[in-house]
Simulated scan of single mutants.
Amino acid sequence: MRLAIATLTVLLAACSPRVDPQQEAQGLQAFATVEKVFQHPRCSNCHIPGDQPLQFDTQTAHMMGVVRGPKGEGAAGLPCSSCHGEANLPASYGPNAPPGAPHWSLPPPDQKMAWIGVPASELCAMIQDRKRNGDRDLDAMFKHVAEDKLVLWGWAPGGSRAPVPVPHDQFVAAFRTWMDAGAPCPKAAARG
C-alpha cells in the first residue's frame, strides 16, 4: 500500500505543471497593474454589477436614465449610439461632451464582467472564466485589451476625463507577463 501511494505521489508530481516561483511572483506583480487598470473609472464605469452605467471620475450614475439594455447597447429607443459616436467630439463641444469610440456599449447582461470593488482574487478568476468574460480564452482577452478600440479609448478619453493612469504599452506588457506566468491569481484575503 505504501509503495502504491509513493508511486502515485511521484506520478502526480510528474504530471503537474511546474511553476517557477520567481515567474509566478512576477505574474502576480504584473496582475497588480492589470487590476489597477480594470478598477479605474475608464474601465469600471461600464463594467458594472447593475444595469445603469456610471460616468465621470466620480462614478456617478449615468444621467437620463440610461440602462444596459438586452444586448448591452442601451434600451430600445435610447441606444448608447444616440449620444456616443465613433470618436470623441471636438474640444469645442465642452469638457463634458459625450465621449465616443467604436461600438460604444456595456458588456451584455449575461456576461457583465462587473468588477467594481471586487477583490483581486475574484477579478483574476473572472478574467479567466469564459462563462463570465464573453467566451474568451486568455489569448482572446489579450487581443481585446491590446487592440479593441473601445478599450483603447480609456487612454484618450477626451474632455476633462482622466485617462487610465498606466500607459497602454505598460498595461499590455503586464497582461502578457501575467499570462506567460500561467495567469496566477492573488490569494483571497482571509476573512476575520
Score class of each variant (00 low, 15 high):
121 S>R: 03
104 W>C: 04
34 V>M: 06
103 H>D: 15
173 A>V: 06
170 Q>N: 13
38 F>E: 01
93 Y>M: 13
81 S>E: 10
62 H>S: 11
45 N>I: 03
156 A>W: 06
63 M>K: 13
65 G>T: 08
40 H>W: 09
141 M>Q: 12
83 C>T: 09
87 A>I: 05
30 A>S: 11
63 M>S: 14
171 F>R: 11
36 K>C: 01
187 K>T: 15
87 A>W: 10
87 A>E: 12
54 L>G: 00
107 P>N: 05
3 L>W: 03
36 K>G: 02
86 E>N: 08
13 A>F: 08
89 L>P: 04
15 C>W: 14
40 H>P: 00
52 Q>Y: 05
162 A>W: 05
126 M>R: 15
46 C>I: 01
83 C>S: 11
113 M>V: 02
18 R>V: 07
43 C>L: 00
94 G>D: 11
59 Q>D: 00
21 P>E: 06
17 P>I: 08
49 P>W: 13
180 D>Q: 15
190 A>Y: 07
30 A>E: 00
82 S>H: 04
118 V>E: 10
1 M>F: 08
137 D>F: 08
95 P>K: 06
109 P>E: 03
83 C>K: 05
21 P>N: 09
104 W>T: 12
86 E>H: 05
77 G>F: 06
24 E>T: 04
161 R>G: 07
28 L>I: 09
20 D>W: 05
158 G>I: 10
128 Q>P: 07
128 Q>L: 13
1 M>L: 09
157 P>A: 08
33 T>G: 00
61 A>K: 11
26 Q>R: 15
179 M>P: 02
14 A>E: 03
78 L>H: 13
173 A>L: 06
52 Q>A: 08
160 S>Y: 04
122 E>W: 00
109 P>W: 12
12 L>Y: 03
156 A>T: 15
75 A>E: 13
105 S>I: 09
46 C>E: 00
153 W>H: 15
121 S>V: 05
100 G>T: 09
59 Q>H: 04
8 L>T: 05
112 K>P: 01
75 A>T: 03
159 G>P: 06
182 G>W: 09
183 A>L: 07
35 E>N: 11
75 A>N: 04
158 G>L: 15
91 A>K: 13
169 D>A: 15
71 K>A: 05
154 G>D: 10
84 H>F: 05
46 C>L: 02
191 R>S: 14
29 Q>L: 06
6 A>C: 00
180 D>V: 11
1 M>D: 06
125 A>T: 12
58 T>L: 04
11 L>N: 00
